[in-house]
Each structure stands twice: as structure tokens, then as C-alpha cells.
């Protein structure tokens, strides 16, 4: 779980658009259903294979095949589902799950955000309203890029709004206290 600071609230959790994962999902379903086609075909071509012990061995191989495809589906789902772009009222957190043992977590304070660029390019992104968002900052990490995010314009507006709040709050805190008001 993401550890939040005191008073920090998650405003938006964004993942890549679901059809970025659709080809993998389709492939995994195809791989899992493959034994349902292959086993009867073998039975037709080699009638001896529908008798024991060959049938049992083939079923065992089919179960291991389906199990491996299922694991592969979840491994791919892990890479998709744990790629997250989180906006809180204090910072932006970008988590990139590159592979099972390769994870990059970076964050910037909202007050350090300088520019935000969104790119919606192509027929599908335009009709289905998804695109890339690039955030430039004054921090050590010069820019964040999050690809294939849903409703990038809304997200940009939300970030800009929270950026204005964060800057106003920082100004308020850094302003010297007037001794006359004490």
C-alpha cells in the first residue's frame, strides 16, 4: 500500500486504459482454450489416445498448460495493474511496474510542477478519449510521462487546480508574520 502523509488524501488513481491490456487478455484466453480444440483433434486422428492411460496423460499435460497460461495472464495483469499514476493533494506519484522484479516509484510535489502537456494522437485515442500526459517539474526528475491514460484533459485540469492550491498554501506558509498582528 502507498503510505500517505498526515492529512494527505488521494484525489485520483489512474491506470492505463483497459484495452491496452486487451490483446494479452485475448491471447491468454486463446492459450487456455487451446487444449479444448487440440485434445478432441488428437482423439480423431489417433483413436488409441482416447483410451487410458494416454487420455490421462494428455489431460494432465492440458491442465499444466492451462495453469501456465493462467499464471502468464496474471503476470501480464500485474504489469498492467501496478502501473499507476496517483494524484494526491500534496504530490504526484508515478509507479511503473516494468517486470516482476523491476519497479520504479517516483514522485514530485505539486508545487514543483511547471508544465503539463497532453497528447491525444490517432483515431482510437481521439474517439475513445485517451492519450499521454507529460508533466515537467523543477524537481530532480525533470519530467513524468504517463501513457495511454483515460481522460487526460480532465486529469490535466485536476492537476493544475491542485497545483494552484499547493502554491497558494506554500506562499501562505512562507510569508513572514507581521509583529503588529501578534
Amino acid at each position: 500500500m502507498i503510505s500517505l502523509h498526515e492529512g494527505e488524501k488521494i484525489l485520483s488513481v489512474n491506470r492505463k486504459v483497459w484495452f491496452a491490456f486487451a490483446p494479452i487478455y485475448g491471447s491468454a484466453i486463446g492459450l487456455m482454450t487451446m487444449p479444448l480444440i487440440v485434445l478432441p483433434s488428437i482423439g480423431v486422428l489417433l483413436p488409441i489416445s482416447i483410451n487410458q492411460p494416454f487420455l490421462g496423460v494428455m489431460l494432465l499435460v492440458a491442465i499444466f498448460w492451462m495453469w501456465a497460461a493462467w499464471i502468464w495472464l496474471f503476470l501480464s495483469l500485474l504489469n498492467y495493474y501496478l502501473d499507476i499514476f496517483i494524484l494526491t493533494n500534496e504530490r504526484i506519484i508515478h509507479i511503473e511496474q516494468r517486470s516482476l522484479f523491476n519497479r520504479v516509484v517516483s514522485e514530485i510535489r505539486l508545487s514543483r510542477v511547471q508544465d503539463i502537456t497532453i497528447t491525444i494522437r490517432g483515431f482510437l485515442p481521439t474517439t475513445l478519449n485517451y492519450g499521454n500526459i507529460r508533466i515537467q517539474s523543477a524537481a530532480e526528475i525533470p519530467e513524468f510521462v504517463f501513457t495511454e491514460v483515460r481522460y487526460p484533459e480532465k486529469l490535466k485540469e485536476l492537476i493544475m487546480q491542485e497545483h494552484r492550491h499547493a502554491v497558494a498554501q506554500e506562499h501562505l506558509l512562507s510569508r513572514p508574520v507581521n509583529p503588529a498582528t501578534k
Partner: peptide, 26 residues
């Protein structure tokens, strides 16, 4: 091998989910 892979993936989902998402369910 397959069980170990499943356990590692499940642990990743369990540890790295975000508050309120479906990672624990997965």
C-alpha cells in the same frame, strides 16, 4: 514452479496495491 510463480505474483498484488483498489481481490 507454477505454485511458486503464483505465490510471488499474489504477494506483489497484495503488497503494491493502492488503497481501495482490487489488487487484494486479484
Amino acid at each position: 514452479i507454477l505454485s511458486l510463480a503464483a505465490i510471488i505474483i499474489a504477494l506483489h498484488f497484495w503488497r503494491y496495491g493502492v488503497q481501495g483498489d482490487k489488487s487484494k481481490l486479484l
